[in-house]
Nucleic acid binder design. Structure first.
Lengths: 148, 148
DNA sequence: GAATGATGGTTACATTTGTAACTATCAAGA
DNA sequence: TCTTGATAGTTACAAATGTAACCATCATTC
């Protein structure tokens, strides 16, 4: 058998491994501090960034399945970190907003999240940082994960 | 609330999204052709690349939890795509090898896997390809997912 | 305005996954 | 050689996830 595919050089495998490594390190932060799951963190940060959204919009922004969003919203609602408000114009929709408690928790987490990225880049030169960012942008283009 | 973290620019989020996009497209190939799961594919390709291995070694190479490996090995064994052989020197170990059928299946899949990568890079210029590869290598270094 | 099809969101069920406990085996030392 | 602790691998159980069915509501059309 002539073996041409080598896992260590295979792009999808490398991507998965890198993403998993980043995710493990990052999620440890909000899991330890607040016991948040990944979908909960994504819902929280999406609402923090965009303000009032529906569950569907959260899913679109954060690439999560609607059942994942539904459960995360329900869980954050139980914590009183967000409020649900039935849309008057279209009663199928629920407008979601972070409560003061939700915003406060987010504000506690945000610097640590940003710091993770800073730490990640700290060992690199400015040139390497640029190259890495550019490389990822090209990758995203190739994968078609961008709207553009 | 001053919002500094933006998901679309946040590295871990972008990585996850890119890896998920690649994985979805790739796994569709071996799922459609053979009904393989991701852990099964990884086990198959790792054994194809390295030859005789133990379950533990497969896990180390492919970054999979030992229960995932155990289940994937069991499943591939049911298909008769691999053989299990108790190690004489250390009877806790099982040496795993692809059977002729396993190798044949792998040989059917390998070109399609490689072709996926080719297609992914096809829309890029040579310069972009280099930049992307270099960017990912830098990223792996920053994340510490490399042995070196 | 009643019927039809589409949409936002939830939930039941099945599948997948991880955690922890377990078995069998080995290695090291008393 | 009898313990003690470590290791390879499996499995029971619980948690997370996806699929599909479902409910409520809306928009459209007759």
């Amino acid at each position: 058998m002539v073996q041409k595919l080598q896992l260590e050089n295979f792009l999808p495998y490398r991507l998965n491994r890198a993403a998993a490594a980043a995710s493990v390190q990052l999620s440890a932060i909000y899991r330890r501090k607040y016991g948040l799951t990944v979908p909960e963190w994504r819902t929280l940060s999406t609402l923090a960034q965009f303000g009032e959204l529906t569950a569907k919009q959260i899913g679109a922004h954060s690439s999560m399945h609607k059942t994942k969003v539904s459960r995360a919203v329900s869980s954050l609602n139980t914590r009183r970190w967000l409020s649900r408000k039935r849309d008057a114009a279209d009663r199928r929709l629920e407008q979601l907003n972070l409560t003061a408690r939700g915003k406060e928790a987010y504000n506690q987490l945000e610097p640590q999240m940003l710091d993770f990225e800073v730490q990640l880049l700290a060992g690199l030169t400015a040139t390497e940082r640029d190259e890495m960012m550019r490389g990822i942008a090209i990758l995203e283009k190739a994968l078609g994960v961008l709207d553009t």
